[in-house]
């Protein structure tokens, strides 16, 4: 049982929970995720850790209410307990000084991008962050991103904030403007697919953090498998980050719809 010590709304459907998990807070690195279960009949779902406070013994999760389990989680209030939080899982992000790194995120994918932006900056990279969402209200963590980025570009589908356009427009603009050494992308699978297609055109090495269906999250069930470079990989133990140019996003999108209509 893990206590929620703080709750904040980013928008009607996106909340930030600060959760007591001292051991995870101490052990986690950028890129790690946790498995969370809400209620005795709850489902185990993976959530990437947004940040951690070792002194307070807490981790922060950003959740978008999209399905039954995420809705249940978002309905919890400060003082409530999450039934299970286990982690940190997956491999940490490979951080080093690459040069210039473009970090692009869409929707709640921006949340797990934050620790990577932070770590990349700390490692001496020039970090350009591209945040994208459908509309102004859905842009999250802009302030924190600005703290750790050399530049933040905001893209909205409807042009209500920043520039009108997709995340790929923002990334392409940077590529055309200056030399970029690495791209990191986190967001909806379809967004990452198009980022990968774009950066492949420019031969720009790109890392994508995948959020697939999982059950145990520790390398036991194989529900999270994806095809990377023609080989089956398990996101929970081999990932969650992979060379985006090698990921079969179409298969991943298909597998994400496995339980559509059943839930």
């Amino acid at each position: 049982m893990n206590k929620i010590v703080n709750k904040e709304y980013f928008s009607a459907n996106v909340v930030k929970l600060e959760v007591e998990a001292p051991l995870i807070a101490r052990a986690r690195k950028a890129g790690h995720f946790v498995i969370v279960r809400t209620g005795e009949k709850g489902e185990r779902i993976p959530l990437t850790i947004t940040s951690a406070d070792v002194e307070r013994g807490t981790i922060t999760l950003v959740i978008q209410a999209v399905g039954k389990s995420t809705r249940k989680l978002c309905a919890l209030e400060a003082g409530d307990y999450i039934t299970d939080v286990v982690g940190p899982l997956g491999k940490a992000t490979h951080i080093e000084k690459f040069g210039t790194v473009v970090c692009c995120g869409g929707g709640v994918g921006v949340a797990p991008l934050l620790p990577i932006v932070e770590a990349m900056k700390k490692a001496g990279n020039k970090v350009i962050t591209v945040l994208a969402a459908r509309t102004k209200e859905l842009i999250i963590l802009e302030e924190q991103m600005r703290q750790h980025s050399d530049e933040v570009i905001i893209m909205t589908d409807d042009g209500s904030y920043g520039r009108k356009g997709l995340v790929t427009n923002g990334v392409e603009e940077v590529i055309n403007r200056e030399k970029v050494d690495l791209c990191v992308t986190i967001g909806p699978a379809v967004m990452m697919k198009f980022v990968a297609l774009l950066t492949k055109k420019y031969d720009l090495p790109t890392i994508a953090s995948l959020n697939t269906i999982m059950v145990d999250g520790t390398g036991m069930c194989g529900a999270c498998r994806v095809t990377v470079g023609g080989k089956t990989k398990f996101v929970c133990v081999d990932g969650p980050e992979f060379d985006a140019h090698q990921v079969d996003f179409d298969e991943m999108l298909m597998r994400l719809s496995s339980y559509k209509g059943i839930e």
């Binding site: 051991l23 995870i24 052990a27 299970d84 286990v86 982690g87 940190p88 899982l89």
Partner: peptide, 10 residues
């Protein structure tokens, strides 16, 4: 429960 040796604790 919920404690992974090698991850939560080294």
């Amino acid at each position: 429960t919920d404690c992974i040796i090698g991850k939560t604790l080294s």
